[in-house]
Design a binder for these strands. Structure first.
Length: 490
DNA sequence: TTTCATT
């Protein structure tokens, strides 16, 4: 059917031709719908983005009277998100639809079958969903089910696959209860090594939204090209344009206390930072937090942050305490640069419920990831400053600081030169020198270098925030430089 | 080795 394979649906019959029996429920035209008190809201996934409510309605109406059907759209762009919520007047209709459709049919243009299942809001599934890693890539969903079925009733089992359909060697398994999931972890985690897997089976609770957010931010940081100094200096304003939309999204989500897309947060924070540095007004980023918004959830309160125009302004300046976090959560009381940290705080404020001294370790862990994330855009701000304005102090000569002030940095991006290296570390203090080592023959960076500060505190702060910082696929190694004569036996 | 998406 050409209409469908082209993804062109005329809205009156396109989809139904393939899927429904053109049956209309009798007796419900024109009535005001009422739903049962035990109705179930269904989540519908894998919907082609060119189908709207009126296209979808016929497909679902055959299972009963629809109370509400809403295609999810981006709040600002209006972009179809490829999924919908569906509530039938009768609970029974939802069950019938789920049975008949879930994973049973692939809509035109989609490469995975339609999803019809209770919405997250109906159940709260996170605490019974497991991530299973280190599977053999040949193992099917059924194989995984067999492995897990003795611990409880499995509601969902999905092998993660790439675009080519190949297994990524991991899966999600959702039980009907937390206890069942826990039992599976106890019995299966590390219990065996699948042929071809590089280590033993991993069975753990799947990431929470927050963990996923953090993971995504890290990935995004690698993707956006912001670690490439060329892109940084010449592409900053292009990036600015690209993300404006997302900034708008950030504003409203923050204002409404809604979900904050990591991309939006990241982009907005960058722009905020740039605006601040360039002495521009913060645009529409008026903090709207208040009322029930928890501390730290507000828009990054740039207005409350001293303008970081002075390079020295970064030195040892204690940032505002987002969330009222105790000092203890920062190792040694050393703080990353404040601007993005507040955005970090935004994500973390909810991670840090139920604070207690015993929670300090896990908090520290949580902070480490975000702190790392938080740190770079500070450097980014500095670099963007270099674009419209003369660059900050460039060291005229190699100077080594006192012991404890000199850092060795490994796994630098290939493109990084002395200046980029310095800019990356400026947020932590006065950089008195920076040197990337280059291959004499090729003039290519050897991807390591040295940075010297004028005081050990700055060096420690830099280690704290930048060691392990993910850039693309690599993580920076940032440690104290060994004293000159160390490790020389002669 | 953490998903395509959950107002």
């Amino acid at each position: 059917m050409a209409t469908l394979t082209n993804g062109q649906v005329d809205g009156t019959n396109g989809l139904v031709n393939g899927l429904s029996h053109s049956h209309s429920p009798a007796g419900c035209g024109g009535t005001i719908p009422m739903k049962d008190h035990d109705a179930i809201k269904l989540f519908i996934g894998q919907i082609p983005r060119n189908l709207d409510e009126k296209d979808l309605r016929p497909l679902f109406e055959e299972f009963g009277k629809i109370y509400e059907l809403t295609v999810l759209k981006d709040r600002f762009t209006g972009m179809h998100k490829g999924c919908a919520f569906l509530t039938y007047c009768a609970r029974e209709s939802a069950l019938k639809a789920q049975n008949a459709l879930h994973e049973q049919k692939t809509l035109p243009g989609m490469n995975r079958p339609i999803q019809v299942k209770p919405a997250d809001s109906e159940s709260r599934g996170e605490d019974r969903k497991l991530f299973v890693g280190m599977l053999n890539k040949q193992q099917s969903e059924d194989d995984v089910r067999r492995l897990f079925e003795s611990f409880g009733s499995i509601e969902e089992c999905t092998i993660l696959r790439g675009p080519d359909g190949n297994s990524k060697g991991c899966a999600f398994v959702k039980y009907s209860s937390h206890a069942e999931a826990q039992a599976a972890i106890s019995s299966l985690h590390g219990s065996q090594t699948m042929p071809g897997a590089s280590s033993s089976l991993v069975v753990k609770f799947a990431d929470t939204d927050k963990e996923r957010t953090i993971r995504r931010m890290q990935q995004m940081a690698g993707q956006m090209g912001i670690f490439n100094p060329i892109a940084l200096q010449f592409g900053a304003y292009g990036a600015y344009a690209q993300v404006q939309q997302q900034q708008a999204a950030l504003m409203a989500s923050v204002g409404q206390g809604g979900y904050l897309s990591p991309m939006a947060a990241f982009a907005a924070a960058q722009m905020q930072h740039m605006a601040t540095i360039n002495g521009l007004p913060g645009g529409p980023m008026t903090p709207t937090s208040g009322g029930s918004t928890p501390p730290g959830i507000g828009a990054p309160t740039v207005t409350s942050i001293p303008s970081p125009i002075s390079v020295n302004g970064f030195t040892g300046m204690p940032p505002p305490q987002a969330n009222g976090q105790p000092e203890a959560v920062y190792t040694n009381g050393i703080h990353p640069y404040p601007v993005l940290q507040e955005v970090g705080g935004c994500f973390l404020s909810s991670l840090s419920e139920a604070q207690s001294p015993t929670a300090a370790d896990s908090l520290q862990q949580a902070y480490t990831g975000v702190q790392q994330y938080a740190a770079y855009p500070a450097a980014y701000g500095q670099i963007s400053q270099a674009f419209p304005q003369p660059p900050p102090i460039i060291p005229q000569q190699q100077r080594e600081g006192p012991e404890g002030c000199n850092l060795f940095i490994y796994h630098l991006p290939q493109e990084f030169g002395d200046v980029e290296l310095m800019q990356m570390f400026l947020p932590f203090g006065n950089v008195i020198s920076s040197k990337v080592f280059v291959d004499r023959a090729t003039n290519q960076s050897k991807c390591f270098g040295f940075v010297s500060f004028d005081n050990p505190g700055s060096a420690q702060a830099a280690i704290q925030s930048m060691n392990g910082f993910q850039i693309g696929m690599k993580r920076l190694k940032v440690q104290l430089k060994r004293p000159k004569d160390a490790n020389r036996p002669y």
